[in-house]
């Protein structure tokens, strides 16, 4: 027999622990149940199981969706962290470039100072 899903509501057979008379008690209660409630309760039980089945399937869908979103978030986090790391690396490269430019500017100023201190040739010499 197939096992019922965990979420499904089902009939529970009567049992009795009363010695000797137990089977009689069970038989009586089963017959009484057949007469008084079974035809009323079973359709309700079926309705309930239909609803539970739908809820169960929906929860499964939501779980799959959450799992999917979680994986996308993971990917996004990895991607953002990689961008952050790239930015740090670019920041270092930019700093190196700025320092080199600053040094070249200092050298240029020094060269300009040296050049400006060299006496200009007189107009006679130019001719």
């Amino acid at each position: 027999m197939n096992e019922l899903p965990e979420w499904q509501v089902h009939e529970v057979p009567f049992t009795s622990e009363v010695p000797v008379l137990g089977p009689l008690v069970v038989r009586f209660r089963s017959v009484w149940n057949q007469v008084s409630t079974r035809w009323y309760v079973l359709p309700v039980l079926q309705q309930l199981n239909d609803i539970l089945g739908r809820v169960h399937r929906r929860i499964e869908q939501i779980c799959r969706r959450i799992e999917q979103i979680y994986r996308r978030l993971e990917n996004l986090s990895d991607w953002t962290a990689a961008v952050d790391r790239d930015q740090a690396s670019l920041h270092r490269s930019l700093a190196e470039a700025r320092l080199r430019i600053a040094q070249l500017e200092r050298r240029l100023r020094e060269m300009e100072r040296v050049v400006s201190s060299v006496p200009k040739p007189s107009s006679k010499e130019e001719r």
Partner: peptide
Amino acid sequence: LREMAYAEGANGI
């Protein structure tokens, strides 16, 4: 979170 992500990615978060 940002520093942990920087170091370890999604697992860090």
